[in-house]
Design a protein around this nucleic acid. Sequence first.
DNA 1: CCCTACTACCTACACCGTAAGTATTACCTA
DNA 2: TAGGTAATACTTACGGTGTAGGTAGTAGGG
Lengths: 218, 218
Amino acid sequence: MTKRGQGKPAGLSRERIAVAAVDLVDRQGLESFGVRRLASELGVDPMSIYNHIKGKAALLDAVSEAVLAEVSATAAQWPDDWMDIARTMARGYRDMAIRHPRIFPLLATRAQTSAVAFEALERLTTAMRRAGITDQAIADAPLVLFGFLNGYLLATLSTDPGEAGGPATGAAQPAFDPALYPTMAALAPLQAGFGGEPEFERMLATVLAGIAEGAARA
Amino acid sequence: MTKRGQGKPAGLSRERIAVAAVDLVDRQGLESFGVRRLASELGVDPMSIYNHIKGKAALLDAVSEAVLAEVSATAAQWPDDWMDIARTMARGYRDMAIRHPRIFPLLATRAQTSAVAFEALERLTTAMRRAGITDQAIADAPLVLFGFLNGYLLATLSTDPGEAGGPATGAAQPAFDPALYPTMAALAPLQAGFGGEPEFERMLATVLAGIAEGAARA
DNA sequence: CCCTACTACCTACACCGTAAGTATTACCTA
DNA sequence: TAGGTAATACTTACGGTGTAGGTAGTAGGG
């Protein structure tokens, strides 16, 4: 009575698995994610997944690659000016992070070596060269920009709201005791929009200003 | 023949557990870290740990709190100028990250709400206020600075070298195909010191310049 | 001296990632 | 059309995990 549909292709493929994995992590989070959960989601034996993806690490790689590809896909076209390119990239990257807050830590933690990542870097650096910026400043720029983006987005998205709250609208901060931390407490109102878009634009401008200043400084 | 030393205090304490956990993660990495491993390291039953720390999540909290405390502990004294303070903090933070590369992802991922973290923020913001900087720029500064630090250090330390290589001396990057990514390939020599101290100082200066520029801009 | 609180331990359960082996199908060749 | 081959999916099993629940022993206060 056993051995039912064995051997018959169940329509699995690396891409289909990746799509389902992205969806599963989006819904249930990284903690509970696993090969077995994903397999049951696909209506498939856990080990069948191993025919397409080597192990859990490779699975997570596929997940992060899939969401990273969204960034390039959503950008209709690219400006000429390097600052506009950087801004467009940063905004698209943030939008992706907001769409997939529970996946984003994967991106920030793992080194990105996919083609889409390389293409983005190439696009940015080429535009900076066109603008006649110092090579050293150009070489540093990606690490400064994406270092900031990764760290900032990690911080603002890390407060996992479960289900409540709109997307990226100020995950509540812990509130400072005025007796212990008077300055921080006084500043608290100005940090109300924590994680919001105006704040992001402000800080992005700050970092880009630093890069531009460094380009001039050299 | 069972029931040997049951009930007798084995000298466990939250702090002793945290110290052992830090040491264990430093040596074996986050992946393999677990309650059972830690318990055997301490020569103790796994469940005994639960008498002092609620669960694995709390255990990781204790680990990250312990290494974060090192930063304040190593700084002998603090300068007056806010930029010097920021630099000192950043360097101490980087030194800590280099000492504990496998623990650092924990810090960058989890929101820091410990007293040492708050004190550091209070110190920085108070100094900025003394300098007469706009409140909005002050309120933004910590997130920009530590956002960058977290993202940058994550990127430069993520290439886990296992055992080889000196500390933080250029984890080799993937090398770009000149045919596909000509600009990046041309820039590669300038990225040789990836993760090194001069690079860090350059990028830190870039970010601080951006913050200072934003302070003037407002 | 007993009683209480506390620490440490033991057992057990549900779950995990995955190595190794087996059965079934689809396709290509003759 | 028949036979062989490679690919795919499944099954079983092993050693690990976090931790809930219950038990045994000691330390210190009355």
